[in-house]
């Protein structure tokens, strides 16, 4: 870490000398890091937009489509309840889906960059 940087994260914990800012900039501009960034963003960003849209659809339907939401599916179970439970289900599935993506596509790339950077290359 360069000495003229503002007190990085404060605190007197003894810090091993890590990579320099120049090294970080070089890595950030490397093709390998670009791939890692793309692998994260191209997955996480659209998925975030998708689940927020799906959730907002639910909120808006609850607000403005009461008749439809009140339709009985079976017994006293109506569309509103099924829709709500579907939100639970999709949350569980998206968490699982992301974690699988992260473990297979992100972790190996991140680990490779990290070990090279920490070895001082």
């Amino acid at each position: 870490m360069t000495t003229d940087a503002p007190p990085p994260q404060g605190g007197p914990e003894i810090q091993p000398t890590g990579p320099t800012t120049e090294q970080f900039v070089a890595v950030q501009e490397s093709a390998e890091f670009g791939e890692l960034r793309r692998a994260h963003r191209s997955f996480a960003f659209p998925l975030t937009v998708a689940f927020i849209a799906w959730y907002l659809l639910y909120v808006l339907m609850s607000n403005y489509a009461g008749g439809f939401m009140g339709t009985k599916v079976f017994g006293n179970i109506n569309v509103a309840l099924v829709f709500g439970l579907a939100q639970f289900l999709t949350t569980f599935l998206i968490a699982w889906f992301y974690s699988r993506h992260a473990a297979t596509k992100l972790d190996p790339k991140a680990a490779a960059i990290k070990s090279r950077l920490e070895a001082g290359e």
């Binding site: 970080f24 950030q28 501009e29 950077l117």
Partner: peptide, 19 residues
């Protein structure tokens, strides 16, 4: 601060130098 952002971005995605 471009240098600082490079540090933050690389650290945040790779865990380099994480405490």
């Amino acid at each position: 601060d471009k240098g600082k952002y490079a540090e933050l971005e690389v650290k945040s995605l790779t865990g380099t130098g994480a405490h």
